[in-house]
Design a protein around this nucleic acid. Structure first.
Lengths: 207, 207
DNA sequence: TTGGAAAATTAACACTGTAAAGTATATTTG
DNA sequence: CAAATATACTTTACAGTGTTAATTTTCCAA
């Protein structure tokens, strides 16, 4: 029986297949709609079996949140070849935007939900590492003559804040609401990218 | 019986007292922990009575979200006397920050939750009005010589995005995580305000 | 006083996360 | 090989959730 064989194979690494099932449902229906019972049904086990491999739902959300960071890191790694720090910073901004819009459920879990961080006390490794990368690029920009008059950490936070704010406003549909029935910017998709370009332009002026 | 009298008095405007109870619980325990049943218990009515006055939970969250916007508008109105547009813009930023931190449950409901907007199709009156105010101040700044080379709407979105991003990162504790165990900025509270000052400084340079 | 409308309640459904207890299955030991 | 033990999984159960339908109470006008 094919199903049974696959089931046995999956048992070899049930923890991983729970995560895979969770990921699948999560991407399809979002976090709130991904229940323990649905995950269990997906892998054809009883709901309480999940608890033998994950402490609770927050632990699963934490694992998904880690997957999200891996995905983002893989996108960023493509940009490693860009030598000029400011060009790299701009490219990172675009990549961040694209990641947030294309994987908005992951983005939500990584930066807007508190469940994943409930099972992590005082040490948000993934976030801290991502910030260190941004900080290094900012410091590179400073060596190239950009933002020299500012504190690097504050400036990195400012950049992160702006990108995070724009992405969440866009994802939640607030940018679209606000720009609607405006004459000047008819194209809604452009409002977001045009705002990003405005941001880049302000950074450019700080050389 | 004093309780009964108050109950009768409340029945005169039960819809309002439902909202008051919801608000009280919501401020105390947050949105997720504010259940219909708890609201009902608070006003000493049965859970289903709520549904005679509000369509569903989203309708209650929308009413709370409106309360939040009223509160924010009242904070902004204090700033009306500030003549210089850029000074007003800065003051609005500080007020926005303070509002977000002091009323982070309201802030969450106003800008980060989607439930309140579920019962409002395509017309987010409160948000659009708030943005119009920001837009006018930005245009005032442009007349005073600031940000002249930028499109006003995009620039207003940029400003909103930055403020929103910094506030949410701060509220969720991400700013604190990232700044922790850093030598340079020991004082965590200052990291947030210092980043805001950095933002203001960049705006200042765009005159 | 009675009839009908309005207001509130009880009961019920279909969910949720999670803990405790019970049952197979596999593995080790005598 | 048979019995004891350990592992893996399931069943049952609890305390919640939002929400609907049917039922009861309350009140007011004829």
């Amino acid at each position: 029986m094919g199903i049974k064989e696959r089931k046995i194979k999956h048992k070899e690494d049930l923890k991983q297949s729970i995560l895979d099932a969770a990921k699948k449902l999560f991407i399809k229906d979002g976090y709130a709609a991904t229940s323990i019972r649905k995950i269990a049904a997906e892998i054809e086990f009883s709901p309480t079996t999940i608890y033998l491999y994950y402490k609770d739902k927050a632990a699963i959300s934490h694992a998904l949140h880690q997957e999200g960071f891996k995905l983002l890191a893989s996108q960023f790694s493509i940009l490693a070849h860009i030598d000029h720090p400011f060009e790299r910073l701009k490219a990172m901004g675009r990549t961040y935007m694209q990641f947030a819009l294309e994987n908005n459920d992951f983005y939500e879990l990584m930066f807007n939900r508190e469940e994943p961080l409930d099972c992590v006390d005082d040490h948000w490794e993934e976030g801290e590492q991502a910030f260190r990368i941004l900080l290094m690029v900012v410091q590179g920009c400073q060596e190239a003559g950009y933002f020299k008059q500012f504190n690097a950490e504050s400036f990195a936070m400012f950049i992160w804040g702006t990108m995070h704010g724009l992405c969440t406003l866009k994802i939640k549909g607030h940018l679209d609401h606000v720009v609607k029935r405006k004459m000047v910017m008819q194209d809604i998709d452009d409002a977001f990218t045009h705002t990003f370009e405005t941001f880049i332009a302000t950074l450019e002026k700080l050389k």
